[in-house]
Design a protein around this nucleic acid. Structure first.
Lengths: 137, 137
DNA sequence: AGAAATTTGTCCGTATGTATC
DNA sequence: AGATACATACGGACAAATTTC
């Protein structure tokens, strides 16, 4: 059905078709796209070509891919404003000892300590934050 | 956090984190690790991925697994000396969220959170302090 | 003794990531 | 572009061992 795109790489043609389906809600926001294998069959292309098309849409921010799950059309695309900074799952940094840590470690308050912070999320919701403090070695 | 393998596979990242906890006595020698399901929740991974991480540590000889019981950190790994005793202290209390915790949990700064603090000592010296933060449910 | 809950063991199917030809 | 192979990852289901009440 899509208009022929002569002279265009196959993956671009496929990307356009998928973009159109998302824009026209043939693929609903938040729902899974067909698997790469299924799309390969439908478009009579190899999985590699399908993956290039998907990669293009992912770079446009239209879709999100999860390892072992599949590729989703992004939900509520016209909302997420800026300032929504993403916190890394785990990070290490130096912090200065608060009064309690200073007492525990037997150092002066303000002394640099190594802090590792791990964030565990579930369904976009932060479940637990773990902060581990050690001496600088 | 699923998604592509940037660098290391997830199960190896998880194995590293667990190894670190064992090395730093966050998980004490001879004690049970959290169940595979609990770890799956904490790390937002499937049980299969957790099992791969555990398998890696088991091959390193760091832990031992028993069917129906759980997985233990190996006791007396490097008996460098006799009086190497560890005395963890734990306490729970409510604290008010600092700016970063507020962002992570999506609450107003100053909101009360539950903090669990564990102190692991060795030979009178504080080795590590772990602070775990959760919502008040 | 027995039932229920918990935890690890195993197997299946499906999907994506990556490398190679 | 296409094809294949293997690694990584998810999720469900059930069995087996153990603990708890």
């Amino acid at each position: 059905m899509p208009t022929p795109h002569y002279g265009q790489p196959r993956y671009r043609v496929i990307a356009s078709e998928l973009r159109s389906r998302i824009d026209n809600y043939v693929i609903l926001p938040g729902s899974l796209l067909p698997s790469e294998s299924a799309l390969a069959t439908e478009f009579q292309a190899s999985r590699g070509t399908i993956r290039k098309a998907i990669e293009a849409l992912r770079e446009e921010g239209l879709i999100v891919t999860e390892h072992g799950r599949g590729t989703y059309a992004k939900p509520n695309r016209n909302r997420s404003g800026p300032g929504v900074s993403i916190q890394p799952e785990a990070q290490r940094r130096q912090v200065s000892a608060d009064r309690e840590l200073a007492v525990l470690f037997g150092v002066e308050p303000g002394t640099a300590l190594l802090e590792e912070q791990t964030v565990a999320r579930q369904g976009g919701l932060t479940r637990v934050v773990v902060r581990t403090y050690r001496r600088l070695t």
